[in-house]
Design a protein around this nucleic acid. Structure first.
Length: 574
RNA sequence: GCGCCCGUAGCUCAGCGGAUAGAGCAGGGGACUUCUAAUCCCAAGGCCGCAGGUUCGAAUCCUGCCGGGCGCACCA
Protein backbone atom coordinates (compact mmCIF):
# COMPACT_ATOMS: atom_id res chain seq x y z
CA UNK A 1 0.00 0.00 0.00
CA UNK A 2 1.64 3.19 -1.18
CA UNK A 3 1.54 6.13 1.16
CA UNK A 4 0.17 9.50 0.18
CA UNK A 5 3.61 11.00 0.18
CA UNK A 6 4.97 8.21 -2.01
CA UNK A 7 2.21 8.70 -4.55
CA UNK A 8 2.97 12.37 -4.81
CA UNK A 9 6.69 11.85 -4.81
CA UNK A 10 6.62 9.25 -7.57
CA UNK A 11 4.43 11.31 -9.81
CA UNK A 12 6.49 14.44 -9.31
CA UNK A 13 9.73 12.55 -9.82
CA UNK A 14 8.48 11.21 -13.14
CA UNK A 15 7.36 14.64 -14.29
CA UNK A 16 10.62 16.28 -13.22
CA UNK A 17 12.65 13.53 -14.91
CA UNK A 18 10.84 14.00 -18.17
CA UNK A 19 11.50 17.75 -18.07
CA UNK A 20 15.11 17.51 -16.91
CA UNK A 21 16.08 14.42 -18.85
CA UNK A 22 17.61 12.91 -15.71
CA UNK A 23 16.43 11.71 -12.32
CA UNK A 24 15.48 14.54 -9.99
CA UNK A 25 14.51 14.51 -6.34
CA UNK A 26 11.34 16.60 -6.38
CA UNK A 27 12.11 17.91 -2.89
CA UNK A 28 8.62 17.29 -1.62
CA UNK A 29 7.59 18.62 1.79
CA UNK A 30 4.61 19.77 3.75
CA UNK A 31 3.78 23.40 3.13
CA UNK A 32 2.19 26.31 4.88
CA UNK A 33 0.92 27.61 1.58
CA UNK A 34 -0.75 24.41 0.44
CA UNK A 35 -0.82 20.79 1.56
CA UNK A 36 2.54 19.98 -0.01
CA UNK A 37 5.18 21.82 -1.96
CA UNK A 38 7.87 20.65 -4.36
CA UNK A 39 10.92 22.90 -4.58
CA UNK A 40 13.12 21.13 -7.09
CA UNK A 41 12.46 23.58 -9.94
CA UNK A 42 14.51 26.27 -8.21
CA UNK A 43 17.62 24.17 -8.03
CA UNK A 44 17.11 22.86 -11.53
CA UNK A 45 16.83 26.27 -13.13
CA UNK A 46 20.51 26.97 -13.34
CA UNK A 47 21.47 23.56 -14.61
CA UNK A 48 18.84 23.72 -17.35
CA UNK A 49 19.58 27.41 -17.93
CA UNK A 50 15.90 28.14 -17.63
CA UNK A 51 13.44 30.12 -15.66
CA UNK A 52 12.41 28.27 -12.50
CA UNK A 53 8.77 29.26 -12.82
CA UNK A 54 8.73 28.01 -16.39
CA UNK A 55 10.34 24.74 -15.37
CA UNK A 56 7.81 24.30 -12.59
CA UNK A 57 4.99 25.01 -15.04
CA UNK A 58 6.41 22.43 -17.47
CA UNK A 59 6.57 19.86 -14.71
CA UNK A 60 3.00 20.54 -13.69
CA UNK A 61 1.84 20.29 -17.31
CA UNK A 62 3.66 17.02 -17.88
CA UNK A 63 1.29 14.77 -15.98
CA UNK A 64 -2.28 14.46 -14.76
CA UNK A 65 -3.11 15.46 -11.21
CA UNK A 66 -6.87 15.50 -10.96
CA UNK A 67 -7.07 12.02 -9.44
CA UNK A 68 -4.93 13.16 -6.49
CA UNK A 69 -5.05 16.92 -6.29
CA UNK A 70 -7.70 19.58 -6.24
CA UNK A 71 -5.17 22.24 -7.15
CA UNK A 72 -1.61 22.30 -8.45
CA UNK A 73 -0.10 25.73 -8.88
CA UNK A 74 3.23 27.35 -9.45
CA UNK A 75 3.89 29.93 -6.80
CA UNK A 76 6.54 32.43 -5.81
CA UNK A 77 9.90 31.97 -7.52
CA UNK A 78 9.03 28.44 -8.69
CA UNK A 79 7.47 26.38 -5.94
CA UNK A 80 4.89 23.82 -6.97
CA UNK A 81 2.05 23.91 -4.48
CA UNK A 82 -0.19 20.88 -4.25
CA UNK A 83 -3.57 20.77 -2.59
CA UNK A 84 -4.95 17.28 -2.15
CA UNK A 85 -8.37 16.32 -3.40
CA UNK A 86 -10.76 15.35 -0.63
CA UNK A 87 -11.84 12.30 -2.63
CA UNK A 88 -8.27 11.08 -2.83
CA UNK A 89 -7.82 11.56 0.92
CA UNK A 90 -11.05 9.69 1.54
CA UNK A 91 -9.96 6.72 -0.53
CA UNK A 92 -6.59 6.54 1.20
CA UNK A 93 -8.25 6.77 4.61
CA UNK A 94 -10.50 3.91 3.60
CA UNK A 95 -7.47 1.78 2.83
CA UNK A 96 -5.83 2.71 6.13
CA UNK A 97 -9.06 1.91 7.96
CA UNK A 98 -9.01 -1.65 6.69
CA UNK A 99 -5.38 -2.11 7.71
CA UNK A 100 -4.40 -3.29 11.18
CA UNK A 101 -1.09 -1.57 10.71
CA UNK A 102 -2.59 1.78 9.69
CA UNK A 103 -0.70 1.74 6.43
CA UNK A 104 2.69 1.15 8.03
CA UNK A 105 4.49 -1.62 6.14
CA UNK A 106 6.60 -4.31 7.77
CA UNK A 107 10.31 -3.95 7.07
CA UNK A 108 11.08 -5.21 3.58
CA UNK A 109 14.34 -6.67 4.82
CA UNK A 110 14.07 -7.45 8.52
CA UNK A 111 17.33 -7.03 10.37
CA UNK A 112 18.72 -8.47 13.53
CA UNK A 113 19.14 -5.53 15.86
CA UNK A 114 20.81 -5.60 19.25
CA UNK A 115 19.69 -2.84 21.58
CA UNK A 116 22.01 -2.30 24.52
CA UNK A 117 20.20 -0.34 27.19
CA UNK A 118 19.28 0.19 30.84
CA UNK A 119 22.43 -1.48 32.24
CA UNK A 120 22.10 -1.01 36.00
CA UNK A 121 24.87 -2.12 38.34
CA UNK A 122 24.45 -5.05 40.67
CA UNK A 123 24.04 -3.99 44.29
CA UNK A 124 23.55 -0.39 43.27
CA UNK A 125 20.37 1.54 43.16
CA UNK A 126 18.79 2.47 39.84
CA UNK A 127 18.61 6.23 39.63
CA UNK A 128 17.54 8.94 37.19
CA UNK A 129 20.67 8.21 35.18
CA UNK A 130 19.09 4.90 34.20
CA UNK A 131 15.76 6.49 33.35
CA UNK A 132 16.68 7.76 29.92
CA UNK A 133 18.52 4.67 28.79
CA UNK A 134 15.68 2.44 29.94
CA UNK A 135 12.86 4.54 28.54
CA UNK A 136 14.53 5.36 25.23
CA UNK A 137 15.77 1.79 24.79
CA UNK A 138 12.33 0.38 25.51
CA UNK A 139 10.75 2.63 22.90
CA UNK A 140 13.40 1.79 20.32
CA UNK A 141 12.78 -1.90 20.96
CA UNK A 142 9.02 -1.53 20.59
CA UNK A 143 9.36 0.51 17.41
CA UNK A 144 11.78 -1.84 15.68
CA UNK A 145 9.88 -4.94 16.78
CA UNK A 146 6.65 -3.53 15.44
CA UNK A 147 8.34 -2.95 12.11
CA UNK A 148 9.18 -6.64 12.00
CA UNK A 149 12.85 -6.61 12.93
CA UNK A 150 14.39 -9.29 15.10
CA UNK A 151 15.31 -7.34 18.19
CA UNK A 152 17.64 -8.63 20.87
CA UNK A 153 17.38 -6.75 24.12
CA UNK A 154 20.76 -6.61 25.76
CA UNK A 155 20.69 -5.41 29.34
CA UNK A 156 24.42 -4.93 29.88
CA UNK A 157 24.25 -5.47 33.63
CA UNK A 158 27.25 -4.29 35.62
CA UNK A 159 27.85 -7.58 37.40
CA UNK A 160 31.62 -7.83 37.43
CA UNK A 161 34.69 -5.95 38.54
CA UNK A 162 36.68 -4.96 41.58
CA UNK A 163 33.76 -3.64 43.68
CA UNK A 164 32.53 -7.19 44.09
CA UNK A 165 35.33 -7.97 46.49
CA UNK A 166 34.04 -5.50 49.03
CA UNK A 167 30.40 -6.31 48.29
CA UNK A 168 30.90 -9.99 48.95
CA UNK A 169 32.88 -9.34 52.11
CA UNK A 170 30.15 -7.06 53.33
CA UNK A 171 27.62 -9.74 52.49
CA UNK A 172 29.56 -12.19 54.64
CA UNK A 173 29.73 -9.69 57.49
CA UNK A 174 26.00 -9.21 57.38
CA UNK A 175 25.18 -12.89 56.94
CA UNK A 176 23.43 -14.24 53.91
CA UNK A 177 19.91 -13.98 55.27
CA UNK A 178 20.20 -10.40 56.41
CA UNK A 179 21.91 -9.37 53.18
CA UNK A 180 19.25 -11.01 51.04
CA UNK A 181 16.63 -9.24 53.10
CA UNK A 182 18.25 -5.85 52.64
CA UNK A 183 18.71 -6.39 48.95
CA UNK A 184 15.22 -7.67 48.34
CA UNK A 185 13.85 -4.52 49.92
CA UNK A 186 15.60 -2.62 47.23
CA UNK A 187 17.74 -0.93 49.83
CA UNK A 188 20.74 -1.17 47.61
CA UNK A 189 22.20 2.19 48.46
CA UNK A 190 22.55 1.31 52.12
CA UNK A 191 24.19 -1.96 51.24
CA UNK A 192 26.63 -0.48 48.75
CA UNK A 193 27.51 2.52 50.85
CA UNK A 194 28.14 0.42 53.94
CA UNK A 195 30.51 -1.75 51.96
CA UNK A 196 32.19 1.29 50.50
CA UNK A 197 32.60 2.93 53.90
CA UNK A 198 34.28 -0.13 55.37
CA UNK A 199 36.52 -0.41 52.32
CA UNK A 200 37.66 3.16 52.73
CA UNK A 201 38.21 3.10 56.48
CA UNK A 202 39.15 -0.44 57.42
CA UNK A 203 42.50 -1.73 56.19
CA UNK A 204 41.71 -5.28 57.21
CA UNK A 205 38.45 -5.18 55.29
CA UNK A 206 40.23 -3.72 52.31
CA UNK A 207 42.66 -6.61 52.26
CA UNK A 208 39.86 -9.15 52.54
CA UNK A 209 38.04 -7.40 49.68
CA UNK A 210 41.07 -7.57 47.46
CA UNK A 211 41.64 -11.21 48.20
CA UNK A 212 37.99 -11.82 47.52
CA UNK A 213 38.28 -10.30 44.04
CA UNK A 214 41.09 -12.70 43.30
CA UNK A 215 39.02 -15.59 44.60
CA UNK A 216 36.08 -14.52 42.46
CA UNK A 217 38.19 -14.25 39.34
CA UNK A 218 39.77 -17.58 40.15
CA UNK A 219 36.36 -19.19 40.25
CA UNK A 220 36.41 -20.11 43.93
CA UNK A 221 33.19 -22.03 44.45
CA UNK A 222 32.08 -20.40 47.69
CA UNK A 223 32.86 -16.91 46.37
CA UNK A 224 31.06 -17.49 43.12
CA UNK A 225 28.04 -18.70 45.06
CA UNK A 226 27.94 -15.48 47.06
CA UNK A 227 28.45 -13.42 43.93
CA UNK A 228 25.48 -15.19 42.33
CA UNK A 229 23.36 -14.37 45.33
CA UNK A 230 24.15 -10.69 44.91
CA UNK A 231 23.39 -10.80 41.21
CA UNK A 232 20.15 -12.72 41.67
CA UNK A 233 18.80 -10.46 44.35
CA UNK A 234 19.68 -7.39 42.35
CA UNK A 235 18.09 -8.78 39.21
CA UNK A 236 14.92 -9.48 41.14
CA UNK A 237 14.88 -5.92 42.30
CA UNK A 238 15.57 -4.50 38.84
CA UNK A 239 12.77 -6.59 37.38
CA UNK A 240 10.38 -5.13 39.91
CA UNK A 241 11.43 -1.64 38.82
CA UNK A 242 10.95 -2.54 35.17
CA UNK A 243 7.54 -3.90 35.98
CA UNK A 244 6.59 -0.69 37.74
CA UNK A 245 7.91 1.32 34.84
CA UNK A 246 5.99 -0.83 32.38
CA UNK A 247 9.09 -1.64 30.44
CA UNK A 248 9.52 -4.82 28.43
CA UNK A 249 12.84 -5.97 29.87
CA UNK A 250 12.70 -9.44 31.38
CA UNK A 251 15.00 -11.77 33.27
CA UNK A 252 15.99 -13.31 29.95
CA UNK A 253 17.42 -9.99 28.77
CA UNK A 254 20.22 -9.71 31.32
CA UNK A 255 23.48 -10.02 29.42
CA UNK A 256 25.84 -9.07 32.22
CA UNK A 257 29.44 -8.13 31.75
CA UNK A 258 30.42 -11.45 33.31
CA UNK A 259 28.81 -13.25 30.38
CA UNK A 260 31.74 -12.13 28.26
CA UNK A 261 34.48 -13.23 30.67
CA UNK A 262 35.31 -16.39 28.79
CA UNK A 263 35.62 -14.50 25.52
CA UNK A 264 38.12 -11.93 26.77
CA UNK A 265 41.29 -14.00 26.26
CA UNK A 266 40.10 -14.88 22.76
CA UNK A 267 39.51 -11.24 21.94
CA UNK A 268 42.98 -10.40 23.17
CA UNK A 269 44.52 -13.23 21.15
CA UNK A 270 42.63 -12.27 18.02
CA UNK A 271 43.62 -8.62 18.22
CA UNK A 272 47.18 -9.77 18.70
CA UNK A 273 47.00 -12.09 15.71
CA UNK A 274 45.60 -9.26 13.60
CA UNK A 275 48.58 -7.15 14.57
CA UNK A 276 46.48 -4.49 16.25
CA UNK A 277 47.73 -5.03 19.78
CA UNK A 278 50.47 -2.86 21.27
CA UNK A 279 52.30 -2.87 24.55
CA UNK A 280 52.09 0.45 26.36
CA UNK A 281 53.14 1.14 29.94
CA UNK A 282 52.70 -2.53 30.64
CA UNK A 283 49.15 -2.60 29.34
CA UNK A 284 47.98 -4.34 26.19
CA UNK A 285 46.21 -1.77 24.06
CA UNK A 286 44.93 -0.92 20.61
CA UNK A 287 45.42 2.54 19.12
CA UNK A 288 42.38 3.11 16.93
CA UNK A 289 42.95 5.63 14.14
CA UNK A 290 41.79 9.16 14.72
CA UNK A 291 41.93 9.48 18.50
CA UNK A 292 44.43 11.53 20.45
CA UNK A 293 44.87 12.42 24.08
CA UNK A 294 45.68 15.68 25.84
CA UNK A 295 49.21 15.69 24.55
CA UNK A 296 48.22 14.98 21.00
CA UNK A 297 49.49 11.43 21.23
CA UNK A 298 47.51 8.43 20.01
CA UNK A 299 44.81 7.46 22.50
CA UNK A 300 44.72 3.80 23.42
CA UNK A 301 41.81 1.52 24.12
CA UNK A 302 43.08 -0.61 26.98
CA UNK A 303 42.27 -4.22 26.33
CA UNK A 304 44.21 -5.69 29.24
CA UNK A 305 45.36 -3.61 32.15
CA UNK A 306 48.90 -3.57 33.45
CA UNK A 307 47.81 -5.78 36.35
CA UNK A 308 46.57 -8.40 33.90
CA UNK A 309 42.89 -7.66 34.48
CA UNK A 310 40.30 -6.84 31.87
CA UNK A 311 38.29 -3.64 32.08
CA UNK A 312 35.13 -2.46 30.41
CA UNK A 313 36.75 -1.74 27.03
CA UNK A 314 37.65 -5.41 26.75
CA UNK A 315 34.10 -6.39 27.64
CA UNK A 316 32.69 -3.99 25.09
CA UNK A 317 34.96 -5.43 22.43
CA UNK A 318 33.94 -8.96 23.31
CA UNK A 319 30.30 -7.90 23.23
CA UNK A 320 30.49 -6.22 19.84
CA UNK A 321 32.31 -9.19 18.39
CA UNK A 322 29.76 -11.59 19.87
CA UNK A 323 26.85 -9.56 18.59
CA UNK A 324 28.27 -9.49 15.08
CA UNK A 325 29.73 -12.98 14.79
CA UNK A 326 27.44 -15.08 16.93
CA UNK A 327 24.17 -13.19 16.96
CA UNK A 328 24.67 -12.01 13.36
CA UNK A 329 23.29 -8.59 14.10
CA UNK A 330 23.51 -5.93 11.40
CA UNK A 331 22.46 -3.01 13.54
CA UNK A 332 24.01 -2.45 16.95
CA UNK A 333 22.43 0.21 19.10
CA UNK A 334 23.99 1.51 22.30
CA UNK A 335 21.57 3.56 24.33
CA UNK A 336 24.16 5.13 26.58
CA UNK A 337 24.75 8.69 27.78
CA UNK A 338 26.57 11.17 25.59
CA UNK A 339 29.67 11.43 27.83
CA UNK A 340 30.60 7.94 26.72
CA UNK A 341 30.54 8.88 23.06
CA UNK A 342 34.29 8.79 22.52
CA UNK A 343 34.63 5.46 24.24
CA UNK A 344 32.11 3.84 21.93
CA UNK A 345 33.54 5.50 18.84
CA UNK A 346 36.85 3.95 19.80
CA UNK A 347 35.28 0.53 20.31
CA UNK A 348 33.57 0.76 16.91
CA UNK A 349 36.80 1.82 15.24
CA UNK A 350 38.69 -1.10 16.74
CA UNK A 351 35.90 -3.42 15.63
CA UNK A 352 36.20 -2.02 12.11
CA UNK A 353 39.98 -2.35 12.09
CA UNK A 354 39.63 -5.93 13.29
CA UNK A 355 37.25 -6.62 10.41
CA UNK A 356 34.37 -7.53 12.72
CA UNK A 357 32.25 -4.50 11.95
CA UNK A 358 31.67 -4.33 8.21
CA UNK A 359 28.81 -2.99 6.12
CA UNK A 360 25.94 -3.58 6.01
CA UNK A 361 26.43 -4.02 9.74
CA UNK A 362 26.79 -0.74 11.59
CA UNK A 363 26.98 0.42 15.17
CA UNK A 364 25.21 3.51 16.43
CA UNK A 365 25.65 5.28 19.71
CA UNK A 366 22.11 6.31 20.62
CA UNK A 367 23.41 8.95 22.99
CA UNK A 368 21.36 11.12 25.27
CA UNK A 369 21.77 14.15 27.50
CA UNK A 370 21.28 14.53 31.23
CA UNK A 371 18.14 15.03 33.25
CA UNK A 372 18.38 18.38 34.98
CA UNK A 373 16.67 19.72 38.07
CA UNK A 374 14.81 23.05 38.19
CA UNK A 375 18.14 24.75 38.94
CA UNK A 376 19.61 23.60 35.66
CA UNK A 377 22.02 21.21 37.37
CA UNK A 378 21.94 17.45 37.19
CA UNK A 379 18.72 16.31 38.84
CA UNK A 380 19.16 15.48 42.53
CA UNK A 381 17.10 15.41 45.67
CA UNK A 382 17.01 18.48 47.86
CA UNK A 383 19.59 16.79 50.09
CA UNK A 384 21.85 16.44 47.08
CA UNK A 385 21.53 12.68 46.70
CA UNK A 386 20.79 10.97 43.41
CA UNK A 387 17.09 10.35 42.88
CA UNK A 388 16.09 6.69 43.05
CA UNK A 389 14.26 5.65 39.95
CA UNK A 390 11.62 3.86 41.94
CA UNK A 391 10.93 6.98 44.00
CA UNK A 392 10.48 8.90 40.81
CA UNK A 393 7.91 6.42 39.58
CA UNK A 394 6.08 6.42 42.90
CA UNK A 395 5.86 10.18 42.94
CA UNK A 396 4.64 10.31 39.36
CA UNK A 397 1.85 7.87 40.16
CA UNK A 398 0.94 9.70 43.36
CA UNK A 399 0.78 13.04 41.59
CA UNK A 400 -1.31 11.56 38.78
CA UNK A 401 -3.66 10.00 41.33
CA UNK A 402 -4.22 13.37 42.98
CA UNK A 403 -4.91 14.94 39.63
CA UNK A 404 -7.41 12.29 38.60
CA UNK A 405 -9.16 12.50 41.94
CA UNK A 406 -9.61 16.20 41.35
CA UNK A 407 -10.67 16.00 37.71
CA UNK A 408 -12.77 12.89 37.66
CA UNK A 409 -13.97 11.83 41.13
CA UNK A 410 -16.59 9.53 39.61
CA UNK A 411 -14.15 6.79 38.72
CA UNK A 412 -14.07 3.89 41.14
CA UNK A 413 -10.97 3.25 43.21
CA UNK A 414 -9.63 0.35 41.18
CA UNK A 415 -9.92 2.13 37.87
CA UNK A 416 -8.47 5.25 39.38
CA UNK A 417 -5.40 3.45 40.67
CA UNK A 418 -4.79 1.80 37.33
CA UNK A 419 -5.30 5.10 35.55
CA UNK A 420 -2.91 6.90 37.88
CA UNK A 421 -0.24 4.41 36.95
CA UNK A 422 -0.80 4.81 33.22
CA UNK A 423 -0.96 8.59 33.39
CA UNK A 424 1.87 9.08 35.86
CA UNK A 425 4.35 6.77 34.19
CA UNK A 426 3.27 7.94 30.77
CA UNK A 427 3.95 11.53 31.77
CA UNK A 428 7.48 10.76 32.90
CA UNK A 429 8.29 8.73 29.79
CA UNK A 430 6.74 11.24 27.43
CA UNK A 431 8.58 14.17 28.99
CA UNK A 432 11.78 12.28 28.35
CA UNK A 433 11.00 11.09 24.84
CA UNK A 434 9.53 14.36 23.60
CA UNK A 435 12.82 16.16 24.02
CA UNK A 436 15.63 15.89 21.54
CA UNK A 437 17.53 12.87 22.81
CA UNK A 438 20.92 14.48 22.52
CA UNK A 439 20.07 17.44 24.70
CA UNK A 440 19.75 17.81 28.42
CA UNK A 441 16.24 18.48 29.63
CA UNK A 442 14.73 19.97 32.74
CA UNK A 443 12.64 17.63 34.83
CA UNK A 444 9.44 19.44 35.77
CA UNK A 445 6.56 17.60 37.44
CA UNK A 446 3.98 20.29 36.86
CA UNK A 447 4.69 20.58 33.19
CA UNK A 448 4.82 16.88 32.38
CA UNK A 449 1.57 16.19 34.22
CA UNK A 450 -0.25 19.13 32.76
CA UNK A 451 -3.27 18.38 30.65
CA UNK A 452 -2.31 21.24 28.43
CA UNK A 453 0.47 21.29 25.94
CA UNK A 454 2.75 18.61 24.58
CA UNK A 455 2.27 16.03 27.33
CA UNK A 456 1.23 12.41 27.65
CA UNK A 457 -1.98 13.24 29.54
CA UNK A 458 -3.09 15.52 26.73
CA UNK A 459 -2.66 12.75 24.18
CA UNK A 460 -4.27 10.21 26.47
CA UNK A 461 -7.18 12.54 27.02
CA UNK A 462 -7.69 12.94 23.28
CA UNK A 463 -7.84 9.17 22.93
CA UNK A 464 -10.26 8.84 25.86
CA UNK A 465 -12.59 11.45 24.38
CA UNK A 466 -12.77 9.50 21.15
CA UNK A 467 -13.64 6.31 22.99
CA UNK A 468 -16.29 8.28 24.77
CA UNK A 469 -17.90 9.15 21.44
CA UNK A 470 -18.24 5.48 20.56
CA UNK A 471 -19.62 4.69 24.02
CA UNK A 472 -22.08 7.56 23.84
CA UNK A 473 -23.15 6.57 20.37
CA UNK A 474 -23.40 2.91 21.38
CA UNK A 475 -21.61 2.09 18.20
CA UNK A 476 -18.49 0.19 17.28
CA UNK A 477 -15.86 1.29 14.77
CA UNK A 478 -16.60 0.06 11.26
CA UNK A 479 -13.28 -1.22 10.01
CA UNK A 480 -14.81 -2.51 6.79
CA UNK A 481 -15.76 0.92 5.56
CA UNK A 482 -13.53 1.75 2.60
CA UNK A 483 -14.71 5.20 1.66
CA UNK A 484 -14.55 8.28 3.82
CA UNK A 485 -16.11 11.58 2.93
CA UNK A 486 -13.76 14.45 3.64
CA UNK A 487 -15.18 17.94 3.32
CA UNK A 488 -14.67 20.37 6.22
CA UNK A 489 -11.23 22.04 6.55
CA UNK A 490 -10.73 20.38 9.92
CA UNK A 491 -11.43 16.99 8.32
CA UNK A 492 -9.05 17.73 5.49
CA UNK A 493 -6.25 18.72 7.86
CA UNK A 494 -6.83 15.71 10.10
CA UNK A 495 -6.94 13.33 7.13
CA UNK A 496 -3.69 14.67 5.76
CA UNK A 497 -1.98 14.20 9.08
CA UNK A 498 -3.32 10.70 9.66
CA UNK A 499 -1.95 9.65 6.29
CA UNK A 500 1.54 10.84 7.27
CA UNK A 501 1.91 8.23 10.02
CA UNK A 502 3.88 5.73 7.90
CA UNK A 503 6.49 8.32 6.97
CA UNK A 504 6.96 9.41 10.56
CA UNK A 505 7.35 5.86 11.79
CA UNK A 506 9.91 5.11 9.08
CA UNK A 507 11.89 8.26 9.78
CA UNK A 508 11.85 7.67 13.51
CA UNK A 509 13.04 4.08 13.10
CA UNK A 510 15.97 5.40 11.11
CA UNK A 511 16.94 8.40 13.25
CA UNK A 512 15.82 6.97 16.60
CA UNK A 513 14.78 10.51 17.46
CA UNK A 514 11.66 9.58 19.34
CA UNK A 515 10.66 13.23 19.65
CA UNK A 516 9.79 13.12 15.95
CA UNK A 517 7.08 10.65 16.83
CA UNK A 518 5.90 12.58 19.90
CA UNK A 519 5.70 15.76 17.83
CA UNK A 520 3.60 13.96 15.27
CA UNK A 521 1.25 12.59 17.92
CA UNK A 522 0.87 15.94 19.63
CA UNK A 523 -0.02 17.55 16.33
CA UNK A 524 -2.47 14.73 15.66
CA UNK A 525 -4.15 15.31 19.02
CA UNK A 526 -4.45 19.06 18.44
CA UNK A 527 -5.84 18.54 14.94
CA UNK A 528 -8.30 16.08 16.35
CA UNK A 529 -9.53 18.32 19.14
CA UNK A 530 -9.92 21.08 16.63
CA UNK A 531 -11.98 18.75 14.44
CA UNK A 532 -13.89 17.68 17.55
CA UNK A 533 -14.87 21.27 18.30
CA UNK A 534 -15.94 22.03 14.76
CA UNK A 535 -17.44 18.82 13.42
CA UNK A 536 -20.21 17.10 15.33
CA UNK A 537 -19.89 13.36 14.94
CA UNK A 538 -22.86 11.61 16.48
CA UNK A 539 -25.30 14.34 15.47
CA UNK A 540 -24.20 14.23 11.84
CA UNK A 541 -26.23 12.10 9.47
CA UNK A 542 -25.62 9.02 7.39
CA UNK A 543 -22.48 9.19 5.34
CA UNK A 544 -21.02 12.17 7.18
CA UNK A 545 -21.52 10.52 10.53
CA UNK A 546 -20.05 7.24 9.32
CA UNK A 547 -17.09 9.05 7.80
CA UNK A 548 -16.44 11.08 10.91
CA UNK A 549 -16.57 7.93 13.00
CA UNK A 550 -13.83 6.49 10.80
CA UNK A 551 -11.77 9.63 11.30
CA UNK A 552 -12.30 9.26 15.06
CA UNK A 553 -11.39 5.61 15.02
CA UNK A 554 -8.29 6.12 12.89
CA UNK A 555 -7.16 8.92 15.18
CA UNK A 556 -7.71 6.79 18.28
CA UNK A 557 -5.86 3.86 16.76
CA UNK A 558 -2.97 6.03 15.64
CA UNK A 559 -2.70 7.70 19.04
CA UNK A 560 -2.87 4.38 20.86
CA UNK A 561 -0.35 2.77 18.54
CA UNK A 562 1.98 5.72 18.67
CA UNK A 563 1.86 5.84 22.45
CA UNK A 564 2.39 2.10 22.61
CA UNK A 565 5.54 2.48 20.50
CA UNK A 566 6.71 4.93 23.15
CA UNK A 567 5.89 2.46 25.90
CA UNK A 568 2.94 4.54 27.09
CA UNK A 569 -0.59 3.33 27.72
CA UNK A 570 -3.70 4.93 26.25
CA UNK A 571 -6.68 4.46 28.59
CA UNK A 572 -10.15 4.28 27.10
CA UNK A 573 -11.57 6.40 29.90
CA UNK A 574 -10.07 9.10 32.04
C1' G B 1 45.55 22.06 24.19
C1' C B 2 42.50 18.49 21.22
C1' G B 3 37.63 16.31 20.42
C1' C B 4 32.17 16.02 20.92
C1' C B 5 27.49 18.52 22.12
C1' C B 6 24.70 23.06 22.79
C1' G B 7 23.42 28.80 22.37
C1' U B 8 16.08 30.18 18.42
C1' A B 9 9.93 34.29 21.83
C1' G B 10 9.86 35.97 29.20
C1' C B 11 10.19 30.20 30.18
C1' U B 12 10.54 24.99 28.04
C1' C B 13 11.49 23.43 23.25
C1' A B 14 10.61 22.18 17.61
C1' G B 15 12.55 23.45 12.87
C1' C B 16 18.77 21.76 10.56
C1' G B 17 19.15 24.24 2.52
C1' G B 18 13.62 26.76 0.41
C1' A B 19 8.36 31.47 0.58
C1' U B 20 6.34 36.07 5.96
C1' A B 21 11.22 31.27 11.63
C1' G B 22 6.92 27.44 14.49
C1' A B 23 4.65 24.96 19.07
C1' G B 24 3.54 24.64 24.20
C1' C B 25 3.64 27.20 28.86
C1' A B 26 3.26 31.98 31.28
C1' G B 27 0.83 36.84 30.40
C1' G B 28 -3.77 39.49 27.31
C1' G B 29 -8.86 38.84 24.94
C1' G B 30 -12.92 35.52 23.78
C1' A B 31 -16.09 30.58 23.60
C1' C B 32 -19.70 25.75 27.82
C1' U B 33 -28.50 24.57 28.28
C1' U B 34 -24.88 20.87 22.56
C1' C B 35 -20.18 13.89 21.43
C1' U B 36 -15.49 14.39 28.53
C1' A B 37 -14.23 22.87 28.88
C1' A B 38 -8.78 17.58 31.59
C1' U B 39 -11.00 21.60 25.72
C1' C B 40 -11.07 25.19 21.73
C1' C B 41 -10.54 30.09 19.11
C1' C B 42 -8.09 35.09 18.59
C1' A B 43 -4.32 38.71 19.34
C1' A B 44 0.57 39.78 21.14
C1' G B 45 5.49 38.22 21.64
C1' G B 46 12.15 36.93 17.77
C1' C B 47 19.46 41.42 15.54
C1' C B 48 17.57 32.35 15.25
C1' G B 49 25.01 34.02 20.35
C1' C B 50 28.53 37.39 17.08
C1' A B 51 31.35 38.10 12.44
C1' G B 52 32.71 36.50 7.76
C1' G B 53 31.99 32.91 3.64
C1' U B 54 29.38 29.23 0.16
C1' U B 55 24.46 29.40 -2.49
C1' C B 56 19.37 31.66 -6.91
C1' G B 57 18.10 31.05 -1.52
C1' A B 58 21.24 30.16 5.25
C1' A B 59 18.34 29.60 11.86
C1' U B 60 19.94 25.34 8.83
C1' C B 61 26.25 24.17 5.29
C1' C B 62 31.76 26.07 5.96
C1' U B 63 35.48 29.13 8.81
C1' G B 64 36.71 32.16 12.94
C1' C B 65 35.31 34.28 17.53
C1' C B 66 32.18 34.68 22.27
C1' G B 67 29.41 31.96 26.02
C1' G B 68 27.84 27.08 28.43
C1' G B 69 28.23 21.59 29.13
C1' C B 70 30.94 17.03 28.61
C1' G B 71 35.11 13.85 27.39
C1' C B 72 40.49 13.04 26.74
C1' A B 73 45.20 5.39 29.61
C1' C B 74 44.40 1.03 33.40
C1' C B 75 36.86 3.40 37.56
C1' A B 76 32.46 1.75 34.63
Amino acid sequence: MATLQQLLHDRLAAAFASVAGEPVDPSLRRSQHADFQADAALGLARRLRGNPRQIAADVVGRTRWDDLCAAVEVSGPGFINLTLADDALGALLGAANADDRLGVPLAAEPETVVVDYSAPNVAKEMHVGHLRSTVIGDSVVRLLEWLGHRVIRANHLGDWGTPFGMLIEHLLDLGGAEAAHELSLGDLNTFYQAARAKFDSDEDFKTRARNRVVALQGGDEQTVRLWRLLVQESEKYFLSVYDRLDVRLTGADFFGESAYNDMLPQVLAELDRLGLLRESDGARVVFPAGFTNREGEPLPLIVRKRDGGFGYPATDLAAIRHRLHTLHATRLLYVVGLPQRQHFEMVYEVAREAGWLRPPARAEHVGFGSVLGPDGKVFRTRAGATVKLIDLVDEAVARAAALIEEKNPDLDATERAELARTVGIGAVKYADLSNDRTRDYVFDWDRMLSLEGNTAPYLQYARARIESIFRRGATAPDRSRRTVTVAAPAEHALALHLLAFPEIVAETAESLDLHQLTGYLFRLATLFTSFYEQCPVLRAEDDVRASRLVLCDLTARTLARGLDLLGIGAPRRM
